[in-house]
């Protein structure tokens, strides 16, 4: 009997392997932040130079549905389960961890800027990676015609509801295959702060100019981070480009 079983076993395993797969295969590859490496920008007649721009990013969840919100996307197709402090002014790439998920189309993403409200937490909380306990900490100088003011902003982007991400959904156009080698995340802090009325700050002579919660400039920055100038996500196939 034992011999019989032994001889049958390879046959059984062969038969067991005859089936086809079940759905999308799983994939994983690195996620990186690629910096635009711009620390200077012009808003009207004001030149703004950033001395510090640190942003907490993550976690990020990717969905096949058009909306990545918690109520419309029960199961993600990919995720970056790490919170990273990004020096947005640094050159080169910043590793964000690993993108893990399944092959297939990705149409939306939801993510936090270092402040999360996971279930069943009773309130939103900043992660240790959040710079100074905030989603973003930005410092710099705004100059116009020889007049300069320092400015600083501690931006908090909080989830509105328990169990949701701070950015409930962002459109993504991408397809993940087994050939996908990495995902590039990119955002431009200068574009977020282009909404700030630095001219008024210079005119007011406030130094340092603090962009705080409740201020119009603060809200404008948050809106850009969440809605109008969110990060972009690009899935790259083939070998990852060599680091510069």
């Amino acid at each position: 009997m034992r011999c019989l079983l032994r001889s049958l076993f390879p046959f059984v395993l062969f038969l067991a392997g005859c089936g086809t797969g079940t759905g999308q295969p799983d994939v994983s590859f690195p996620a990186v932040f690629t910096s635009p490496a711009t620390n200077e920008f012009v808003v009207g007649d004001v030149t703004v130079t950033l001395d510090e721009a640190r942003v907490a990013f993550g976690p990020a969840y990717f969905c096949a549905s058009a909306s990545g919100s918690a109520t419309l996307c029960d199961a993600a197709v990919g995720e970056i389960r790490r919170i990273t402090t990004i020096d947005a002014l640094g050159e080169g790439e910043t590793p964000l961890g690993t993108y893990a998920g399944f092959a297939g189309d990705v149409r939306s993403a939801s993510y936090d800027y270092g402040i999360h409200w996971f279930l069943p937490e009773q309130e939103a909380a900043a992660s240790p990676e959040a710079p100074g306990g905030h989603s973003a900490r930005v410092r710099g100088v705004a100059s116009r015609a020889g007049t300069s003011v320092r400015f600083e902003a501690d931006i908090d982007v909080k989830p509105l509801f328990q169990g949701q991400r701070a950015v409930p959904t962002t459109k993504v156009e991408g397809t993940v295959t087994e050939a996908t080698s990495r995902i590039e995340v990119q955002f431009d802090v200068t574009s977020w702060f282009s909404a700030v009325d630095f001219g008024a700050a210079i005119d007011a002579g406030v130094d340092p100019f603090v962009i705080g919660p409740g201020a119009q400039d603060y809200t404008s920055v948050v809106n850009r981070m969440v809605s109008t100038h969110p990060p972009s996500f690009v899935f790259v196939e083939g070998e990852a480009p060599a680091a510069p």
């Binding site: 086809t20 058009a66 297939g104 189309d105």
Partner: peptide
């Protein structure tokens, strides 16, 4: 569906949970 535009099933895939060989 709007919630699940790409269900976790594809044409021709093996049915989950059922063993191909039972002895």
């Amino acid at each position: 569906t709007p919630e699940n535009p790409t269900p976790p099933y594809v044409e021709g895939q093996s049915l989950p949970y059922v063993p191909p060989v039972v002895v």
